[in-house]
Structure formats: C-alpha cells, structure tokens
Simulated scan of single mutants.
Amino acid sequence: MEDVKAYIESGILELYVLGDMSAEEKLQVEGMASKYPEIRTEINAIETSLELYARAQAVEPSEQLRNRVLNSMVVNLGDDNTFTKSVTHHDDDNVPQLPAARVNSFYKYAFAACLTLLLISIYGLVNLYSQLQDSNAQIAALRLDKQHFANQVSLMDNQLDMYRDPSYKVLKLKGTAKTPTAAMILAWNAVSKKVMVDVQSVKLPKNDKQHQYQLWALVNGKPVDMGVFDAPDADTAGVKEMKAIASAQGFAVTLEPMGGSINPTMNEMVVIGTF
C-alpha cells in the first residue's frame, strides 16, 4: 500500500493527464490504474481538478472577436490574418498558463537516505554483536582462570595444613635398588587416620596404561592396601588422600597391574620408608 501511495505522490499521474510523457510511460500508468483502483480514482480527480481550474480561469472573448470568428467559419476562410495583431496579442495575454508539471523527487532522496541509514545501523549492530561475543569469551576465560587459581590455592592450603598440623607425621619414602632416584613424601594422621600424599613430591617413573602405582601400609610387618595412583606430571601440585588407617610403622609403593593387586609384587617395589 505504501508503494501505491508513493506512486501517486510522485507526480507521474499529473504528467499523464497533461499528456507530457511517452507512449510507453502512458501504457505503464494505464496498467497501474487498471491494477490499483486508488490510482484510477486519483487520475479522475486530477482531470476534474484541471477542468475546474480551466473553467475558473477562462476569459470571455469580446463581442467583436466572437463575430469575426463566426464570420470566418461561415465563409470557410479560417485565416488568422483577418485578426489584428493587437487583438491576437491581447487575447493571448489573457489566456492563463498552467504551471509546468514538476516531478516530485523528494521521496526518492528520502528513500535513499533511509536506506543508507539502515545499512549503517546494520553494520554498527554487527560490529557491536561481534564485540559483545568477544567480551563474553574473555569473561568466560577469566572465570575459568579464577576457578583454576582458587583450586590451586585450596590445594596449597591443604598441603600447608598437612605440614603445619602437629598431629600429622611426615614420612619421606626413598627409592629402592630398582629405582634409586625415586622418592615421595606422605603424611599420616594417627587421630583422623588420614593418609595424604604430597603429589608434587612424587618422583616416580611414568607408568603405562596397563599399570598403576599402589601404596601399602606396613602394619606389624604385613602390607595393607592403601589405594592406587598414577605418577603425576612434573607441574602437578596439591595433595592426594589415600585410604585411612589407624596404625602403621611405615609405607611402601609398588608397581602393579591396573586397579591394583591383593598382595604387593615385591620385585616391583619403587620406594619405602618407616617411622
């Protein structure tokens, strides 16, 4: 509907009524008029307005001029030379001139300006959305870093508590003849029965996927299973809690099949220590 309104206001219908357009343009206007009743109604209104305007501005010819025209028609002369130049000029001067039709180009410029503003707005929104996505990604990364830092602080606090708490007995396990450079530190609390391994202190050869290290408590000369673990990476920090035990004279670690064994494989012992 907006297109029909813009078409009517463009000024092309006035040019059509005045006949100031090509045959192709006339056919186009007539096609639009047959398709849209509003355009046909507007054409009729323009024609009526021009007719009323012409009647309102019409000049009544003088009686002398009227008689000469009638006489000329009767004798079939029709020669304009019979009219005096003064009279002809006088009448021409009194004939009102219709204002030249002017095509209204305001809407074309307005449409172009609106389209330009729309494109600029879309470009700005796309940039803003991209910046927002980048900001969200940065915020998510900061949150992960914050959580990781908090976890590291918590692990370090637990590790420090293990050494500060006098109820813990700290034991350093040393390598055997099989693995002389191996070592690790653990702490045992006889009150809470907790056994904590200082992960960063573990210096053991990297185990494969078919094996794990198993911790044993030495209780009255007999080994007691304390759980399995993997050799940590070099930069791994924190503490690892193993199974609880009420009494122990020492601890040892052996390399066992994945999941651990019921009894330790003595020739695979890597570290041992006693109180």
Results as ranks from 00 to 15, higher is better:
111 F>W: 07
246 A>P: 01
186 L>H: 03
245 I>K: 01
248 A>K: 02
118 L>V: 05
271 V>W: 00
58 A>W: 02
238 G>F: 06
118 L>D: 04
162 M>D: 11
203 K>L: 05
240 K>C: 02
39 I>G: 14
112 A>V: 08
257 P>M: 03
157 D>F: 06
183 A>S: 12
112 A>N: 10
115 L>T: 14
100 A>H: 13
15 L>M: 08
62 S>P: 10
48 T>Y: 10
14 E>G: 07
270 V>H: 01
196 M>S: 15
118 L>W: 14
206 K>L: 03
98 L>F: 12
157 D>I: 08
8 I>H: 12
195 V>K: 14
194 K>E: 13
180 P>Q: 08
54 A>D: 03
273 G>L: 04
146 K>F: 03
36 Y>L: 06
63 E>N: 09
61 P>V: 13
172 K>G: 09
16 Y>S: 06
51 E>Q: 07
102 R>V: 10
206 K>T: 03
91 D>Y: 08
194 K>F: 01
263 N>S: 14
127 N>S: 07
98 L>Y: 06
60 E>G: 03
51 E>C: 01
59 V>A: 02
36 Y>T: 06
208 D>K: 00
137 A>D: 06
213 Y>G: 05
254 T>N: 02
75 V>G: 05
217 A>L: 04
192 S>N: 02
15 L>F: 12
19 G>T: 06
76 N>G: 08
193 K>S: 07
145 D>V: 01
204 L>P: 05
39 I>M: 10
43 I>A: 01
50 L>M: 10
70 L>T: 08
104 N>R: 07
35 K>I: 12
124 G>M: 15
146 K>R: 06
67 N>D: 15
192 S>H: 00
86 S>G: 10
114 C>T: 09
6 A>S: 11
261 S>L: 00
141 A>H: 04
109 Y>P: 01
148 H>A: 13
206 K>W: 00
181 T>A: 14
268 E>A: 00
211 H>A: 03
202 V>Q: 02
205 P>G: 01
230 D>T: 06
265 T>V: 04
128 L>F: 09
21 M>E: 12
173 L>W: 07
218 L>K: 14
84 T>A: 09
96 P>Q: 12
255 L>K: 02
99 P>Q: 09
86 S>I: 11
26 K>P: 11
142 L>D: 11
175 G>I: 03
73 M>F: 00
16 Y>F: 14
170 V>P: 03
136 N>V: 13
214 Q>V: 01
104 N>F: 02
3 D>F: 10
212 Q>M: 08
129 Y>E: 12
132 L>F: 06
4 V>D: 07
62 S>N: 15
274 T>Q: 13
54 A>N: 00
195 V>F: 04
273 G>A: 10
93 D>W: 14
160 L>Q: 08
273 G>R: 03
210 Q>W: 02
27 L>K: 15
149 F>H: 07
156 M>L: 12
73 M>K: 09
275 F>R: 04
253 V>T: 04
115 L>Y: 15
263 N>D: 14
213 Y>L: 07
251 F>Q: 13
176 T>S: 13
96 P>D: 05
228 V>C: 12
211 H>W: 01
44 N>R: 09
193 K>M: 04
